[in-house]
């Protein structure tokens, strides 16, 4: 112990004893990533099709925007507690909350991706005899792909930063270090857990930023 919690947290991270076993950093990190991936994927299955439909047809946009906005305002810790009281402790309650957390970004990403295609381009595609499905998958989606990936980026960063709440109701993940450190005044451990979450969020954010760049079609990259 050096007296500085930040230095001590780095020391905590460097301690090889914390890198092995069922409570070790690799396993907790994998759990954390797993919860994040599961939350974002389930949310994507719900939100992306709806977003694509709304963006393509222009129907229900007001409802989608309002619903996404309202969902953003829900406090996730409150949701976790509410769901856990209904379905019991474990992974279901936090996972449901992560899905709700991820939906707004994904929904907004999906409909704005489709909407971003120039109306003239879409009309031209239609005039050439493309079906609506072809217009969506061959014109609108490729053009708007960076925005759709951007939706995934926002959702992923939010969920990875919130996935520590899984540990609030009996599951694992990096939140274990944070909650236990807080409860036992082991601040180096708590800060170390937070640093790991921050690092994960940065890595995921930069990876998806790169994906956003790479998915931009050559013609629109300049914009």
């Amino acid at each position: 112990m050096t007296g500085s919690p930040f230095l001590d947290s780095l020391r905590w991270l460097g301690d090889s004893a914390h890198w092995t076993g069922p409570g070790g950093i690799p396993l907790r990190t994998l759990e954390h990533l797993g919860y994040t991936a599961l939350g974002v994927l389930v949310a994507a299955l719900l939100a992306v099709p709806i977003g694509l439909y709304v963006g393509h047809s222009g129907r229900g946009k007001g409802v989608a925007v309002a619903a996404a906005g309202a969902a953003r305002a829900l406090p996730t810790l409150g949701l976790v507690t509410l769901f856990a009281l209904l379905v019991g402790i474990g992974l279901t309650a936090p996972l449901l909350s992560f899905v709700i957390l991820a939906i707004p970004s994904l929904l907004a990403g999906a409909y704005s991706a489709v909407e971003s295609a120039e109306p003239a381009t879409v009309d031209a595609a239609r005039a050439q005899g493309m079906t609506e499905w072809q217009i969506l998958t061959r014109v609108e989606l490729p053009l708007g792909m960076p925005l759709l990936v951007g939706g995934f980026r926002g959702a992923t960063v939010q969920v990875v930063a919130t996935a520590m709440l899984a540990a609030y109701v009996g599951s694992g993940g990096l939140g274990r270090y944070i909650f236990q450190g807080l409860g036992s005044q082991n601040y180096p451990q708590m800060i170390a857990g937070s640093l790991l979450v921050i690092a994960l969020a940065l890595v995921l954010d930069l990876t998806l930023l790169l994906a956003q760049r790479l998915t931009a079609p050559p013609g629109v990259r300049a914009s």
């Binding site: 009281l85 019991g88 236990q180 409860g183």
Partner: peptide
Amino acid sequence: VPVEDSGGPLTVQALLDGD
């Protein structure tokens, strides 16, 4: 089994649910 509400409703619920 960590339930972080300090013996609050979630902890009681986990016991009553048989978790």
